[in-house]
Every structure is written in structure tokens, then in C-alpha cells.
Nucleic acid binder design. Structure first.
Length: 315
RNA sequence: GGUACCAUAGCUCAGUAGGUAGAGCAACGGACUGAAAAUCCGUGUGUCCCUGGUUCGAUUCCGGGUGGUACCA
């Protein structure tokens, strides 16, 4: 009896308002998210929702360092290998599906762990996206074709005509941004600048964000070792088997594109592997830049488990 | 041991007819709303090997060291 009372005591202490909590665990590639998330999810007696836009694809196992079968058996993961690289997918679909699963898990769980390094996908779950349209393939191909044949300057003029406001806000050197704004207008007839409200949505659960980080040298060293391990585990074979799909968006990915260039004879295998390491380091840097904007996040070394747990429990 | 050449950014190297220096790669910083491991923008970070000399002034010229490379023994 007394023990039960203590347990109840400690539970009420750890979560006084009894509010469901989404524990977001992110950090740059190679920092050690997968392992720590499994530990934490086990501890919290819950499941993991992955927010890694490349681990969605079942064909990309080795090159994305997806959780292994053994790891997947320890804790149930969602959004690992649920797609084929030939499937169409986008962040909005993810937002809806992830929220659905999270809400479902909260029926029986106090905590859910959201684990992954794709910043846009994390943001979609945590603060939502504005109501922008998905775009049909024809429109997208058409605009891409205009860019390919007539160049960036043409896209700029186009955008200036349909949405002069967004024209002053957008990165005019970034073709993807401009093409997106154009396709939004072509689809809805409404300028991007009017649809983009940048108003964060309030979720019906508490969110605790942990950004895992390591000293840069340590992270680089881990990345180098991990790439060599991937090669030892069969990354080259994986890439060779996917070569015929190389133009699919899902394969515009570090670890694959460099090997495709090797297969195409652009450079040697050794050079390709070096480039994978370099590009992975750069990707990690971009991720860190993204995470710096999270205002209430705890930044911690993956080894600081006590600190992390105290933060999650609000102690 | 002798001779020649070299020594400049993290790496590979350019350069300064004497006024403390710049490329590529790497690195670092930033942006990001349905392609996001994507896409895009920005930034030289330096005991010019050490030490004497000449000079108003030496990374640059001269002498001596040290280290490296090649060749000759």
C-alpha cells in the first residue's frame, strides 16, 4: 500500500497537470539520436514517432542509418520504412499522419517520443503548417520546365507579376522557393504572400524539445566512422541496386548521390566516399543552424541522460 | 657526406620588380512553410619555417641554421 502511494506521489510530481507530453528528441545526423530515443522511450513506456524524411523509405536502410531490426523490436517505431522511394509524399501528409498517431498513442500513453533530424518535419508536427496547397504533378513539371529552359530570371519575372509582395520576401537566388510560390498561385489563384500566415498552431499536448549535440570534432569523427561502417555494411550494393531510380527525389540524398556519380564515372570510389563524409558534415551543420531557432529546447550531449530526463520530467 | 630545389591559410599551391598576402578545396556562419539528407546565401580563418644582415621598411634581397624532396656519392 505504502509503495503504491509513493509511486502515485512520484507520478503526480513528474507530471503535475497530467498533461500529455510529446518529447521531441532531435540533433544533427550521427549525434546518437536513435539509440538514446530507444532508451528514453523504453523508460517512458511509450513508442517512437520518427521524423526523418529519408528513413521513411524502405529501400534506404543502410545509407540513412535507419534503426535496425533489433532496435525496432525493442521499441515500436512509426514512420520507418513505411514508404517506397517511388511513392509521392510530402510534409503536409506527414503532419496529418503523425498527429493522428500521436493522438492515438496519447489515449494510453503519457508520453510520446518524436525522434528525427528533419527540421521542417518536426516543425510541421510541433507548430503546424499554413494551409498551402499540394500541387499536381503537371503544374510542377510545367514550372520546372520553364526554369530549365528559360532560367531563374524568367521565374523571378513571373513571380513579380503574380505576387510582388512575396517577391520582396523570398530568396530570389533560390529556384525552389520561387517555383513553389508560383505553383501555389497557379493552383489556388491566391498569392503565396496571402496564404503564408506564419501563425503557429497550438497543439493539445505539451512539447519538450531536446537537441542532442556534441563538440564539432567529435561529431565529425563519428560521421567519418559511420560512413565507413555503412560501406562495410553494404552501402555500395544498396546504391547500385537503386541506381536506376536515381532521378527520384528520395534518392537526392547524401550517401546515394555521391555513389551514383561514382557509378556514372564522375569520380573514383574513394573520392565518392570522401564526398559522402563531407556532405554529411555539411548536412549536420545545416541541421544545427535550424535547431538554433528552437527557443525552449534543452541542448545536451547524448551522454547527459540525467539532465535530459530531469528536463523531460520538468524537475 | 656533397650538390640542387623547396618551405606562404587545415590541405594543394599562387604572389609580392621590398610597403605584412590570395585562389581552389576543406572549414565556419546564416536562411528555410507540401522536393527538406533538399534548395539557397554569406565569411579568409595567416608568427609568409627560424635567425642574423642590408634597408625608413624584409614574407620578398643576402648570410647562417632547421626541416623536406631529388640527384650524386
Amino acid at each position: 500500500m505504502r509503495r503504491k502511494a509513493e509511486v502515485l506521489m512520484s507520478l503526480s510530481k513528474t507530471n503535475t497537470e497530467n498533461v500529455k507530453t510529446l518529447v521531441v528528441i532531435t540533433g544533427p545526423t550521427g549525434v546518437g539520436k536513435t539509440e538514446l530515443c530507444i532508451e528514453i522511450a523504453s523508460l517512458l513506456d511509450t513508442e517512437i514517432v520518427s521524423a526523418d524524411a529519408r528513413q521513411f523509405y524502405k529501400e534506404l536502410k543502410i545509407g540513412t542509418a535507419a534503426p535496425t531490426t533489433i532496435q525496432l523490436e525493442k521499441v515500436k517505431h512509426h514512420f520507418i520504412g513505411q514508404l517506397s522511394i517511388q511513392d509521392y509524399y510530402n510534409v503536409s501528409i506527414f503532419e496529418q499522419q503523425a498527429l493522428e498517431i500521436i493522438q492515438h498513442l496519447f489515449i494510453s500513453k503519457q508520453y510520446v517520443v518524436l525522434c528525427g533530424g528533419s527540421g521542417l518535419y518536426l516543425d510541421a508536427v510541433c507548430s503546424g503548417l499554413d494551409d498551402l496547397p499540394s500541387v499536381c504533378e503537371e503544374t510542377r513539371t510545367w514550372i520546372q520546365e520553364v526554369y530549365r529552359t528559360q532560367g531563374l530570371e524568367k521565374l523571378r519575372h513571373w513571380l513579380k507579376n503574380i505576387d510582388p509582395v512575396y517577391y520582396t520576401q523570398v530568396d530570389l537566388a533560390n529556384p525552389n522557393r520561387i517555383m513553389r510560390a508560383i505553383e501555389v498561385f497557379q493552383t489556388t489563384g491566391i498569392p503565396m504572400s496571402q496564404l503564408r500566415k506564419s501563425s503557429p498552431k497550438v497543439r493539445p499536448f505539451k512539447i519538450k524539445t531536446v537537441v542532442l549535440d556534441r563538440p564539432r570534432m567529435e561529431l565529425s569523427e563519428r560521421i567519418n566512422i559511420r560512413v565507413d561502417q555503412m560501406v562495410a555494411n553494404g552501402l555500395i550494393e544498396e546504391a547500385v541496386s537503386l541506381f536506376r531510380f536515381k532521378n527520384l527525389n528520395g534518392l537526392n540524398t547524401v550517401g546515394y548521390k555521391e555513389l551514383f556519380d561514382w557509378i556514372s564515372g564522375k569520380y573514383s570510389l574513394q573520392e565518392a566516399i570522401e564526398k559522402i563524409k563531407t556532405n554529411t558534415r555539411r548536412y549536420a551543420k545545416r541541421q544545427i543552424t535550424w535547431f538554433k531557432k528552437y527557443p525552449n529546447a534543452l541542448w545536451a550531449h547524448p551522454g547527459q541522460k540525467e539532465t535530459i530526463l530531469n528536463f523531460i520530467f520538468g524537475r
